[in-house]
Each structure stands twice: as C-alpha cells, then as structure tokens.
C-alpha cells in the first residue's frame, strides 16, 4: 500500500506536479470561499476564460505568461464594470458577453500562433500539470503565499465587507479597495492554477470544495479550512488516479472534488439529502 503511494514520487515531474496540485487546491479553496459567499461563481468563470488572450499575447511577446494572463483578467473585469455601470445590461449578461468574447479571441490567437511556437491549445484549456517546470512551481508558490497572507491579515475586514457591504462602507472601510483587492486575489489564484487544471476547469477547484464545506460547517473560516482539506484531498487523489489509470490529471482532480461534494450533499449531518430523510423518519 505504502509502495503505491511512494512509487510515483520517484519521478521528479510527479513530485513537482503533486506539490503544484496541493498548492493550487489550497488557494483555490480559500479564495473560492469568497466567490461562493458573494454568489460570484460566474465571475470566477468569466475571469478564467478571459485570461486566455493574455496567455496568447504573452507567448507571442515572450513575456511571463502570469503577467499576460493577469492583465487580460483585469481588462475583462474593467470591461464588465463599464458595461454594467453605463447601461441597463445586468451584470451576468455583461459577464457573458465579455468572457465569451475574450475566450474566442484567446482561442483564435493561440490557434494562429500554435504551429510555429510548438504550443498546444489543449494545455491552456485543460492544464498540463505533468509538464510543470521548477520555475513554474516557484512562481505558483510565491503567488500562493501572497494570497494566503493577504487573506490572513485582512480576514476581519473581508468578512465584514463580503457579508454586509453597506454596513462596512458605513463604518468607513475602503470598500472599493477591498473589492479591487478581492478581484486581484481571484485573478492571481486563477492565473496560478492555470498550469494545473486549465481555464475551463479552474472554476471547479474554486467553487466545489467551498460548496462541499458550506454544507458541513457554519462560519467562513471553517468553510475555508474544510474547503482546503477537500481541495487538497482532491488534488492528491486526482494525481494518483491519473498516474495509475492514465487519466488526464485536471479532470481527475475535478472528478474527485465533485465526488466529495456529492457525498457532502447526500450525507452532511445537518444539510444532507439522505440524512435529512432519515431524520424525518426517525422523528415520526
């Protein structure tokens, strides 16, 4: 049994990718908790799809793809806000318009340049965790530490702001700054996760572990902690499944996370579908 766990670790690429998957599982669960409680799941999807043209342009200009992706994500949120604030188009429609446009632009750019640059569109869409380099692991670790420190030090302000924006503003908290800060954390997290799961599946790592936790516990910090636990378990199990059964890593991680969500959905002591049914029967 122990051998089963240790065997893959003799390969450097497996060590790197497993470590990467764990780090990504942690920050996605923490930052995704803020997305979930603010009902901004769609925004996570919008930003992740929107970073694609940034990745492509960074590739063409040969700059760090993290920077390209981040700028594209930023521009897309600005576009969404411009449309929402200056017309009667609602936020969700504005997101739909902007993120699909950016996504289309990104796919077009990558398709055009992929031949001469020997890059693969699929790696952008679904990640390529087995191919992570040491420097990519280092960059991700750096982003993750930054994100976690910010959340740790501004936890009480962010809790107040995400729970009651008007109340927070009324006491003089800089709500625009907090809002921008959260957007930046979300953008950084998505960018840091792209290598692992790609733009399409990153939403799952952001939303599924916190939602699983939300069915089990009642405070934001607990949602984050349990979410991290779920995220890390998913990452590790997903990587091993992918190693032994030759499955694509990103989807394997997502499927484990989804399985844990379904378990929580059915068996959560307070919220579970099946536990609720038995509680009703028992009480009769």
């Amino acid at each position: 049994m122990l051998n089963v766990l240790i065997e893959p670790l003799q390969y450097g690429f497996m060590q790197r990718s497993l470590f990467m998957a764990i780090v990504v599982g942690i920050i996605c669960a923490v930052v995704g908790s803020y997305l979930m409680v603010q009902r901004l799941a769609l925004l996570g999807d919008a930003i992740s799809h929107s970073v694609l043209p940034g990745l492509a342009i960074a590739f063409i200009l040969d700059i760090n793809i993290f920077i390209g992706a981040f700028i594209a994500g930023l521009i897309s949120t600005v576009c969404i806000n411009i449309i929402r604030n200056n017309s009667k188009i609602k936020e969700d429609a504005a997101m739909g318009i902007v993120f699909s446009a950016f996504f289309a632009l990104g796919i077009t750019l990558i398709t055009v340049v992929q031949k001469e640059n020997k890059i693969d569109l699929n790696h952008f869409l679904f990640g390529n965790i087995l191919g992570v380099s040491f420097s990519e692991v280092r960059d991700t670790l750096f982003i993750a530490s930054f994100v976690l420190l910010i959340v740790f030090f501004f936890y009480k302000e962010l809790l107040f702001y995400t729970f009651d924006k008007l109340g927070a503003e009324s006491v003089g908290l800089p709500v625009n700054l907090l809002d921008t800060g959260l957007m930046i954390l979300i953008g950084l997290t998505i960018v840091a996760s792209l290598k692992a799961v790609g733009v399409i599946l990153v939403l799952s790592l952001l939303i599924t572990p916190p939602s699983t936790a939300y069915l089990l516990v009642n405070r934001l910090n607990q949602v984050m902690l349990v979410g991290v636990f779920v995220g890390v378990i998913s990452s590790i199990s997903g990587m091993y499944l992918s190693y032994y059964f030759n499955l694509p890593s990103g989807p394997a991680i997502v499927l484990v996370a989804t399985t844990l969500f379904i378990l929580s959905f059915l068996f959560s002591p307070s919220q579970g579908l099946i536990t609720g049914y038995f509680r009703l029967k028992f009480n009769q």
């Binding site: 409680v37 729970f163 934001l220």
Partner: peptide, 24 residues
Amino acid sequence: IAYVPQRSQIDWTYPATVWDVVMM
C-alpha cells in the same frame, strides 16, 4: 455612526454566526 441596513440588504445564508456579526 452606527447603521443597521434593511433586512433585504443582507444575505442571510452567509456562513457567519451571531458572534461573527456582532464582532463586525
């Protein structure tokens, strides 16, 4: 200043306890 918003402005499904809210 202290301000208590109208009920409809609050998301009552937010994962926070009574204590969390008062500490805000």
